[in-house]
Computed example of a mutant assay.
Amino acid sequence: MFVKLNDRVYLNLAKITRTKIDHVEDGIRVRFYEGQDQVAKSQKFESIKEADKWLKKFLKPQK
């Protein structure tokens, strides 16, 4: 199932093998992986709690 991540990126959730909330140079981001390869990352967040809340909402089954 394809899900819109942002204006330019759609993710095929069937291929995503893991997600990771990570501190990077410019803030906190959620990273999406297919196997060993990072295929996308989210917008910046101020805290890990905000990123986790966004990820749960994003991965919630679409109706």
Rank of each mutant, 00 (worst) to 15 (best):
L13P: 06
R29Q: 10
L59D: 07
V3W: 12
R8Q: 11
R18L: 01
Q43C: 00
K53L: 04
F58W: 01
F32Y: 15
A40I: 08
E46R: 05
L11I: 14
K53I: 04
R29S: 04
I21V: 08
L5F: 10
S47D: 01
S42Y: 01
D7H: 09
R8C: 07
E34Y: 01
K49A: 04
I28R: 02
T17V: 04
V30S: 03
K4Q: 14
V24W: 06
S47H: 02
Y10A: 13
I28K: 01
E34Q: 06
D7T: 12
T17Q: 06
P61Y: 14
K4T: 13
E34L: 02
Q36P: 06
T17S: 10
D7I: 08
N12F: 13
A51N: 01
V3A: 12
K56D: 09
L55D: 05
K15P: 04
T19E: 08
K57C: 10
T19K: 01
V3M: 12
S47E: 00
A14E: 15
Y10P: 01
E34H: 07
L59K: 13
Q38N: 08
F32H: 05
I48D: 03
K4R: 14
K20F: 05
R29I: 11
T17I: 03
R8D: 08
Y33A: 03
R8F: 14
F58M: 05
V24R: 12
W54V: 02
Q36C: 01
K15A: 09
D7W: 09
K41F: 11
Y33E: 05
A40G: 07
K49Q: 00
Q38D: 06
K41V: 08
V39T: 05
E50Y: 00
Y10V: 12
Y10N: 14
V9D: 14
R18M: 01
E25I: 15
K63M: 14
T19I: 03
I28G: 00
K56Y: 04
D52S: 10
L55C: 08
K49V: 01
E46W: 00
Q43T: 04
Q36H: 05
M1N: 15
N12H: 13
R18G: 02
N12V: 12
D26G: 11
R29M: 10
K56V: 06
K41S: 13
K20P: 01
V24P: 03
I28C: 03
K57D: 13
A51Q: 01
I16Q: 05
K44A: 07
K60E: 15
S47A: 00
K49D: 05
K41G: 10
Y10H: 14
V39P: 06
D22L: 09
D7N: 12
D22Y: 07
K53R: 06
V39F: 07
D37S: 03
K20S: 09
K49Y: 01
K41H: 11
F32C: 07
L59W: 08
G27A: 08
Y33I: 00
Q38W: 06
E46S: 05
E34G: 00
V3T: 14
R18H: 10
K56T: 07
G35S: 04
L5K: 07
V3F: 10
V39Y: 06
W54L: 07
A51H: 02
T19Y: 05
V24T: 11
I28W: 02
S42F: 06
K63P: 15
S47V: 00
